[in-house]
């Protein structure tokens, strides 16, 4: 149960790869006064998936679904990185040694530190591995 607090609900939005789709998503979030804390776009041939950490995920889900988007929640974790050379290596090494597979990840560099957001094959194992390895996980309450 201790681990639960580190699991963050990311919203994933299917989007056709054409002009104006990201604007439509962003506009909808603005209308609901939802703040985007981090996001990334994965693109494939002809379509993409927009992934975002937002402060009000449930509200974002409802709003985007309501205007016709395909939306899903995905569990991710956020790890603090030192904003210095080798910061990413430190985290990646811990996960690699723990045999945790990263499905995808994205990062942002904030005022205090850099943050790596990770989608992994086994969330519970990843949390344990990072804690054991001395990494700093960010609680979901920081975001949501």
């Amino acid at each position: 149960m201790e681990r639960e607090k580190f699991i963050i609900r990311q919203i994933s939005v299917f989007s056709e790869n054409k002009p104006g789709r990201l604007a439509a998503i962003a506009k909808a979030l603005q209308e609901e006064e939802i703040n985007i804390l981090a996001f990334s776009i994965a693109e494939a041939d002809g379509f993409g998936v927009v992934r975002a950490l937002v402060d009000k995920p449930r509200k974002a889900y409802e709003k985007l679904s309501g205007i016709g988007f395909n939306v899903a929640f995905t569990d991710v974790i956020a790890v603090q990185m030192k904003d210095i050379p080798g910061g990413l290596y430190e985290i990646a090494r811990i996960l690699g040694e723990g045999m945790i597979n990263i499905e995808y990840c994205y990062a942002y560099s904030g005022k205090d530190a850099a943050v790596l957001i990770l989608r992994v094959d086994d969330v519970d194992a990843a949390i344990s591995t990072i804690m054991k390895g001395g990494g700093t996980l960010l609680e979901s309450s920081l975001f949501q």
């Binding site: 994933s12 494939a44 379509f47 998936v49 679904s65 939306v71 899903a72 499905e103």
Partner: peptide
């Protein structure tokens, strides 16, 4: 159209 129930966050699933 991809059905809502079939939508996956993973690009590989969609592919």
């Amino acid at each position: 159209e991809v059905r809502k129930e079939a939508f996956s966050d993973k690009i590989t699933d969609l592919m």
